Amino acid sequence: MTLREAERAWDFMPVIHPASPRPVNANPSCSAPAPAYRRPTAPPRCLHREEPSATTCFLQHRLAFTSPAPTMRLLIDHQTRYFYEDEVSLGPHNFLLRPRENAMVSVRHFRLSIEPEAKVNWLRDHNENGLLRAFFRDPTRTLSVRVEMEVETLESNPFDFILDSEAFNYPFTYNAREASALQPYIDPTAARGPAADWVREILPALPEETLTLLLELNSRVKENLRYMTRGDAGIQPIEETLRLRSGSCRDIAFLMMHAVRALGFAARFASGYLYEPGTQEKDQESGSLHAWTEIFLPGAGWKGFDPTNGILCDDHFIPLAVGRQPDNLNPVSGLYYGQRKIPSTFQSRVRFQRLDPVP
């Protein structure tokens, strides 16, 4: 292909428009019910990279510099309150409530309020998540945490990437540098686990192209599992999710993570916010906490796949934390102590407001 041919081809590449509205659920720890809409799950013909050439450089240049992506500015107000039947002492608490900033997500303003008063320390954990640790002195019967922030995201086509040529077809092998860095997210034993058996059941013939395979698996997971609100803490065992054919977004993302690891991909668990804009049918915009799976693809990097809704993640997904396992990725975690076993309850709400004009 000549440079001129590449330019003409670019002008006729199809465009996939931003997300359709997503339904939400009031479950404070996870929300992503099966949607009535269907987002595009098939990409435009994926360009992949051969040896560096003038054409490749041109396409990469056009990807980066054609025109700035529109931004979306969101106000997020997230409040969680815990109520204890009697006075308790609070142990150290961890808060993963500040979005992970990258080229597509930036935090313009952030304010976190905690009651009762606590000594707080910010740090980066072993997954490079922004973690706040709080240490409490006085006994209490309530714990209140409120986060108010302004977040800016770049409007993104989730299919706008170029796979390296060696990763275009499945199976492929990560190069030495990638394999070394990704080792914690690759699990050869997953190929002998229940998720691997289930993949062979729902996808007996694996597509040849890598992206087609992952999109098909993402779609099959959504079709075969029913979303359900589950208020219990932790992740449901994979065997239980497969037996019930249902689970929360955390359970479904956990299953998806093990399913793609069984196929040899590097994958990790992600949690964050999912924003739903208003529609003609429903004026009120909203959002919730959600969980999804991220898969590392050479040439594309970490790409988010939401198996609960069967879609790729775009600018409506705002990550808070990622990790090899979901154990330590809860937005709020900690212990409390009392003279006896003291029951507790909690309330949570997340409110979104879009600041920039809707295009």
Rank of each mutant, 00 (worst) to 15 (best):
M1W: 10
E7S: 03
P14W: 10
H17N: 10
P18D: 07
P18V: 07
R22A: 15
V24L: 14
Y37T: 14
Y37R: 10
R39I: 09
R39A: 01
P40C: 12
A42N: 11
P44K: 00
L47P: 05
R49L: 13
T55D: 07
T56D: 11
L63E: 12
L74Q: 00
L75W: 12
L75F: 09
H78N: 11
R81K: 15
G91V: 05
N94T: 08
L96R: 15
E101G: 01
M104N: 13
R111Y: 00
R111N: 07
S113D: 10
A118K: 00
V120D: 04
N121C: 05
G130T: 08
P139L: 08
T140F: 00
R141L: 05
R141N: 08
S144Q: 07
S144V: 01
R146K: 11
N157S: 14
F159G: 08
N169H: 15
Y170T: 05
Y174W: 02
Y185K: 03
I186W: 04
A191H: 06
P194K: 03
D197A: 15
R200V: 06
P207W: 11
T212V: 09
L213Y: 12
S219W: 04
L225R: 11
A233H: 08
I235A: 06
S248H: 01
R250Y: 03
D251T: 03
A253F: 04
F254Y: 15
H258E: 13
G264W: 02
K282Y: 09
L289E: 00
K303H: 06
N309Q: 09
H316R: 13
F317Y: 15
I318Q: 06
P319K: 01
V322T: 12
L329P: 03
S333V: 02
L335F: 09
K341A: 10
S344F: 02
F346L: 11
S348R: 08
Q353I: 01
